Computed example of a mutant assay.
Amino acid sequence: MEKILDINQLSKHYGPLKAVDNVSFKIEKGHVYGILGPNGSGKSTTLGMVLNVVNPTSGSYSWFEGLTSNHDALKKIGAIIERPNFYPSMDAVQNLKLVCKIKNISTDKIEEKLELVDLLSRKHSPFKTYSLGMKQRLAIASALLNDPEILILDEPTNGLDPQGIRKIRDIIQHIAAQGTTILLASHLLDEVEKVCTHVIVLRKGSMLYCGPVEEMNKNFGSILIDAKDRTTLAEFLKTQTYAGSTEDTMDGFEVKLLSDVDTTKINQDAFNAGIVLSRLMFKKQSLEDQFIELTNN
């Protein structure tokens, strides 16, 4: 698989503060990567370093397998790492023509990109009349004018309402389906789970996980189980090979599963042990549960 970006032990320190600490990961062509972490985890700083706007303290990175200089690589990258910044009185076409002039690229793709982000009908409306979601979509259009090999987005849905988030998500999925590699930073688990194929989890500048979303979310889930005699139930659970850590809650025991198990069998085995269950419910562990477990540890 062709490597778009290779990051090796990249760090950025501000005095004693380690904004990014020895982070290493690879971005391969044709995937959608999410850098996931709470505010202050180092997402934006990492993007800033690979886009040559923040100087690393140590470590290295290379674009396109090291065959392209950083200067030339930037011509093959589309990026939005700040709030959309266009001239308020100019319309979409005028603003994008100016972007083309600055980037020294053709204006031929303007209408095509406006159609892709669903702004073609508003192409002659002044930028100041756009909603926040429309402004963000225009920024995406501007980042796509050079048909980049990779699109980098920093918190693309930040501040948007649910409809605006859904619109941006659909656009990202459409762009990815056309073969463009995407790297986005987000603190929204739902966004990463629905859009990304791979995830990099950061916390306080350190990387906790890097790999496919489905692998991070690959688990056996848990069960919520209860009975009138909780003491006997607790002893029963200790003898079951499928039962991992057990948490005592108001609604019963939440048991992390170590293997696949049929709830019908659990019920039958409990009954055979003289336990009548009052509650038995399967719960699949979500990406949010995995993320919280990672960051708490």
Rank of each mutant, 00 (worst) to 15 (best):
104 N>Q: 15
14 Y>H: 03
42 G>A: 08
2 E>H: 08
21 D>K: 03
72 D>Y: 02
44 S>N: 06
13 H>R: 13
70 N>A: 07
84 P>E: 11
71 H>K: 15
46 T>H: 02
77 I>Y: 04
34 G>V: 07
13 H>T: 01
60 S>L: 03
75 K>T: 14
80 I>V: 14
37 G>N: 03
50 V>K: 02
20 V>Y: 00
89 S>Q: 13
15 G>D: 01
45 T>F: 00
92 A>V: 09
104 N>F: 01
28 E>W: 04
47 L>S: 04
83 R>F: 12
57 T>A: 00
90 M>W: 14
74 L>W: 01
32 V>I: 14
19 A>S: 14
36 L>Q: 06
34 G>H: 07
92 A>T: 09
61 Y>C: 08
80 I>L: 15
99 V>N: 04
16 P>N: 11
29 K>G: 06
43 K>R: 12
103 K>T: 05
34 G>L: 10
11 S>A: 10
88 P>G: 08
13 H>G: 01
20 V>D: 00
15 G>T: 01
83 R>L: 10
20 V>H: 00
76 K>P: 03
87 Y>K: 12
90 M>C: 07
20 V>K: 00
91 D>H: 09
25 F>L: 11
7 I>S: 04
30 G>W: 12
93 V>P: 06
63 W>G: 07
57 T>R: 00
97 K>T: 12
94 Q>M: 10
12 K>L: 02
64 F>W: 04
47 L>E: 02
49 M>A: 02
23 V>S: 02
95 N>A: 13
14 Y>A: 01
19 A>I: 01
99 V>A: 12
94 Q>P: 06
102 I>P: 05
104 N>D: 14
3 K>R: 15
42 G>N: 02
48 G>W: 03
67 L>R: 10
45 T>L: 03
88 P>T: 09
62 S>P: 01
51 L>M: 06
10 L>R: 02
26 K>V: 15
64 F>K: 04
66 G>T: 05
60 S>K: 12
28 E>D: 08
36 L>K: 09
51 L>H: 03
84 P>R: 04
12 K>G: 00
65 E>L: 09
50 V>Y: 00
85 N>M: 11
34 G>D: 08
38 P>C: 08
6 D>L: 04
33 Y>S: 05
41 S>F: 07
100 C>F: 09
4 I>Q: 07
73 A>P: 13
86 F>T: 11
30 G>M: 08
50 V>P: 02
70 N>V: 10
38 P>H: 13
42 G>V: 04
57 T>Y: 00
31 H>Q: 15
68 T>F: 08
94 Q>S: 11
19 A>P: 02
24 S>P: 12
33 Y>A: 05
34 G>P: 05
61 Y>T: 11
89 S>M: 06
84 P>I: 06
25 F>S: 07
55 N>T: 14
47 L>N: 02
23 V>Y: 00
88 P>E: 13
